[in-house]
């Protein structure tokens, strides 16, 4: 027989509501709820929260004509699938004639599809690789350092009331960079700056937080390895404005500004939109400051 206290109860309560507990744990939850009014109240409150949440989110539905558009597309595809390969490869005119036999709406869809294919084709052939795109190596390094380096400090950041002052142990000019970011505007706290160095690259790492979430700002050199193309563009970088990258597992968002000599990256687990807002207040002023320094040299 499993005995459950209030703490255990709260720990498993959400999984109980989701019907994800074993039979025994389920029983233990019910037995505890029978005896404990406080936990019965918490159970009601969490069920309430969940249904309010569901009500709020499920108010969003697909656009009204969405299903019709989808139905048309699928019916069109079904027609194409039923056509022998040779006919499909005959090109525009045979498709055109074949489609004369099908209802008007399908024909219109077919034309739209053809136009769309044309547009995609045009773009994929004529647009050169985006010259200022950052390299996967740099982005991976920034996210793994955010995850590794910054997270080590997590426990300290959130358990001690005192901000961490380790920044003072490092080069004072690095501390200086933190002065230019407008972190207060977004309710962010600036914790420390240091020189981070892994995989042969050295960069400045500034760590901020808001509630339970960490934000890293990296200032890296804009060298060949930082660029996807492998060559450093000759521009001053700022013309590219804010760039945004999302990683595959959807875990991190990276927003970046470039100057002629540096890349300023902001990494967090916030949404892309939130991360971009943060980058505007942290990375943009720092990149403007860097530009001033670079133009003097």
């Amino acid at each position: 027989m499993q005995v459950m206290d209030c703490r255990n109860f709260k720990e498993v309560l959400d999984s109980y509501i989701s019907d994800e507990l074993s039979v025994e744990t389920n029983h233990a939850v019910l037995r505890h709820a029978e005896l404990c009014a406080g936990c019965r109240g918490e159970m009601a409150a969490r069920r309430n929260l969940r249904s309010t949440l569901r009500g709020a989110v499920t108010a969003t539905t697909a656009p009204p004509d969405f299903r019709n558009r989808l139905r048309e597309r699928l019916r069109e595809e079904a027609t194409v699938q039923a056509t022998p390969i040779s006919a499909k490869r005959d090109g525009f005119f045979s498709n055109w004639f074949r489609n004369l036999a099908v209802p008007q709406f399908a024909m219109a869809t077919a034309l739209l599809v053809l136009v769309a294919i044309g547009v995609v084709y045009l773009f994929s052939n004529s647009s050169p690789a985006y010259a200022a795109e950052l390299s996967p190596a740099l982005l991976n390094q920034a996210t793994s350092d955010h995850d590794g380096c910054a997270s080590i400090w997590r426990t300290r950041l959130f358990t001690e009331n005192d901000p961490v002052h380790d920044a003072e142990k490092f080069d004072p000019t690095l501390l200086d960079l933190g002065k230019y970011s407008e972190h207060q505007a977004l309710g962010l706290t600036f914790h420390y700056a240091h020189l981070c160095g892994h995989h042969g690259r050295k960069y400045v790492h500034l760590v901020y937080s808001r509630n339970n979430d960490l934000v890293s700002l990296f200032v890296a050199e804009r060298d060949a390895a930082a660029m996807k193309s492998g060559t450093v563009p000759t521009d001053d970088g700022l013309q590219h404005g804010l760039q945004q990258f999302q990683n595959v597992q959807d875990k991190f968002t990276v927003s970046a500004y470039q100057t002629s000599k540096h890349v300023v990256l902001v990494v967090s687990t916030f949404t892309a939109q939130q991360n971009n807002e943060i980058a505007e207040k942290l990375a943009k002023p720092i990149s403007l400051h860097l530009r001033k320094i670079e133009s003097k040299n």
């Binding site: 409150a45 309430n48 949440l53 875990k251 968002t253 687990t269």
Partner: peptide
């Protein structure tokens, strides 16, 4: 304890602030 009587706007705002992960 979880607060009672929350509005949809409040819970939605809290959900939006939750890190994507």
């Amino acid at each position: 304890p979880t607060p009672q009587h929350l509005t949809e706007e409040e819970v939605l705002a809290a959900l939006e602030r939750l890190p994507r992960e």
